[in-house]
Design a protein around this nucleic acid. Structure first.
Length: 298
DNA sequence: GACCAGGGGTGCC
DNA sequence: GGCACCCATGGT
């Protein structure tokens, strides 16, 4: 029975907590949550209240969310929705698995990582920033940049001597000039792009709700690509990991290309046409195919 | 020091 | 729309 400080989130059948936990621990530089001994810790700003919670999963049937600071009863639904989106619980990958088990390029990874979910970025601003940060630099450095950005402009919750960081708000970032980010070694272009996105969100022109209201995947993609700093890769990355479209497909992704090179046993990178040919059988599940192929590398 | 990195913008045709 | 070229900087 859940008390006031607890929340239970029922899990779908296809879900393996330890597999997802292992994915979440893949990079020690991650600063938006902490994983320790089967427990995930994360802080969020919910309606102006800094909330710290931990997630455990003793039975693989429910996520047990325990609030450590700042919970208000009226915010519990918002946090439950955040966690459902974060763990991608509202997509049913049954048909993806049926397809993937017959696909020679996917067969191994879906078997090795059965029950893995597309762990994502429920917050649109965080998703867009992470996409822009990750453009054309190695992933390790992208994590370093993110940490510096978060620790300079975000807020944190202290608990047992450790700081849990909350991603900077677009309201705060919208007020900055590109030069304000130069001391964290963000390139001028990335700084301009991130501030530009923050300003679009701060003035109400861009929001998750407005994008989703467009309904159609292609229309949302088109709308995202209009934004300076957002190209086809970032648009599809956000469609995949924030807006949760299973058909999103960041086809130019270096990680995807390298994973396919490995699975196709090539001594060169596959061509775009070869990737398109491989993806024919992934139809409607391109995002999941990509996510599982990434797991071979990271 | 070359080459790569979970690309994107710009200008040209 | 497709293509070449530029951007900028850490990692290897």
């Amino acid at each position: 029975m859940a008390t006031q400080k607890e929340l239970l989130i029922e899990l779908p059948e296809i879900f393996d907590f330890s597999i997802n936990l292992a994915y979440m621990q893949r990079n020690p530089k991650e600063c938006m949550y902490a994983v320790k001994e089967g427990t995930i810790m994360r802080a969020l700003d919910v309606g102006g209240v800094r909330t710290l919670f931990q997630i455990t999963c003793p039975d693989n049937r429910f996520l047990h969310v325990h609030f450590l600071t700042g919970i208000k009863p009226e915010n519990k639904n918002a946090i439950a929705a955040f966690i459902r989106n974060w763990f991608d619980l509202d997509n049913d990958p049954t048909l993806f698995y049926e397809m993937a088990q017959k696909d020679p390029l996917l067969k191994q990874t879906v078997s090795d990582f059965y029950g893995l979910r597309n762990i994502g970025f429920p917050d649109l601003f965080e998703a867009l920033c992470w996409g822009i940060l990750g453009q054309q630099i190695n992933l390790g450095y992208a994590y370093t940049l993110k940490r510096q950005f978060v620790e300079k402009f975000g807020e944190s919750v202290e608990y047992n001597g450790q700081a849990y960081w909350i991603f900077p708000s677009y309201e705060e970032i919208a007020k900055l000039q590109p030069a304000d980010l130069s001391d964290i070694k963000m390139t001028m272009k990335k700084s301009e792009y991130i501030i530009g996105v923050a300003q679009l969100m701060a003035n109400g022109a861009l929001s998750k709700e407005k994008l989703m209201a467009l309904g159609d995947f292609k229309q949302i993609e088109k709308e995202l690509i209009k934004i300076r700093g957002i190209g086809p890769w970032t648009a599809n990355y956000v469609l995949m990991r924030c807006l949760r479209f299973p058909t999103a497909f960041p086809i130019d992704d270096v990680g995807l290309i390298n994973a396919l090179k490995l699975q196709m046993a090539l001594d060169r990178k596959p061509t775009k046409q070869e990737i398109l040919n491989a993806a024919v059988s992934w139809k409607d599940w391109e995002a999941y195919a990509t996510f599982y192929l990434w797991r071979l590398l990271y």
